[in-house]
Nucleic acid binder design. Structure first.
Lengths: 216, 216
DNA sequence: TATTACTGACTGACTGGTCAGTTATTACGA
DNA sequence: TCGTAATAACTGACCAGTCAGTCAGTAATA
């Protein structure tokens, strides 16, 4: 006689994670206002009431979901890459690209943009944890590249911001396959176009073609 | 004895415009789902019922509001600017920048991103009417610049897409003052940084510094 | 048996959409 | 030129559906 399975199990340790994951999914598909808590509960495999054991309300759940999704980038402390500035830059961009193109990050980027008036503190969090952090990684590399003469003389802050803007927008566009010129391209191709363009863009004239090829 | 003012006036010709304008405003502030039709009606100076005389439902109102806001760009037929490729490019970017940084366009850019799953046809419209159209203006100029030797040898399509991505993201970031490095900068400064960076980025080595200064 | 985790039916506030009724405007006859 | 009938434009109270949030009760676990 088979032992009767319990209808549900107590997993107080895992619940928050399960719920946050489902929440990000649903919020990402419909936006905050249209997201239904019953749907989130379903996907998390719990009942609606359980959500309220761990989160105060829908808004707070959203906040936590975003923060949770941004945790990975907060965790990374970049091992200062070795090699030439070009090499370092390439590695750094590549690492940032992996983060930016992950489904969760795409969702967060879109949601934060969309809800910036309802949740300005999340826009700020995103700016700090993603944009600023990326800048902090990029600037010293660019500066060194200028000193060494590999890159032309430009403002490292501006150059870093340009790259980040370019990377984020590329990542967002690639997801939708819109504009159509991106539809067929996979993530690696887009990254290659991006790095190809950017390295040329900042290369000094006496170093007009830093070899980016074969780098990935 | 003062003649009694009518409580309201019949303005069937203006109503749609009034409503669309109010709708874009409210949609932009709260997103589609949270926007209340009573609020839109208030700001348009009409009652809720009137909205339904001109639009089938909320979704359709949203669609029309976006299309309406994109009409200006559809109307412009660019007079093929005179001068060197650098000059032409500068003029074109400048014109596109004005469009991108207008409050309505900012709102549209944000809304289209946010609602791309609910309204994929609007994402496509935006891609066609903004991104593709910009590309069509930029590509021939870039191509000529390459032929003439002012710009280095790169793929005009990629170069155009990079510029558009950069411009859109810069416009969106500037609005919020986030990242904080953009908070104090006004539109003109951001445009100058953008063009400065980009012209350098695509300049050929034997033309390393096309004079962008004093251009605006 | 006590405690903790969880369920899901329920409630009440909210809002998209409707439509019977009202007001402005126009057309027309005297 | 004035009343008045006809029409088009508009209003706003109402209804029906939805969903965030509650909580009395139940199931799992210690």
């Amino acid at each position: 006689m088979p032992q009767r399975q319990p209808k549900w199990r107590r997993k107080p340790g895992e619940r928050p994670r399960q719920i946050l994951r489902a929440a990000l999914e649903v919020f990402g598909e419909t936006g905050v206002a249209s997201a239904r808590l019953d749907e989130i509960a379903d996907r998390a495999g719990v009942s609606k009431g359980t959500i309220y054991l761990y989160f105060a309300n829908k808004e707070e759940l959203f906040r936590q979901a975003i923060r949770h999704a941004l945790a990975p980038v907060q965790a990374t402390q970049d091992p200062p890459a070795a090699g030439s500035p070009t090499r370092q830059l390439l590695d750094t961009i590549s690492r940032q690209w992996v983060f930016l193109t992950s489904p969760d990050t795409i969702t967060v980027s879109r949601l934060v943009q969309a809800e910036q008036w309802q949740f300005p503190e999340l826009a700020e969090l995103y700016a700090t944890e993603v944009v600023s952090r990326f800048g902090e990684e990029l600037r010293p590399i660019i500066r060194r590249g200028i000193d060494v003469g590999d890159f032309r003389d430009l403002d490292p802050s501006v150059a870093a911001r340009m790259l980040t803007a370019l990377a984020i927008q590329s990542a967002l566009w690639r997801e939708t396959g819109v504009p159509s010129s991106l539809a067929r391209k996979n993530s690696e191709e887009v990254l290659r176009e991006l790095t190809g363009f950017y390295l040329q863009a900042i290369a000094s004239s006496n170093n007009a073609s830093p070899q980016a090829d074969g780098a990935l």
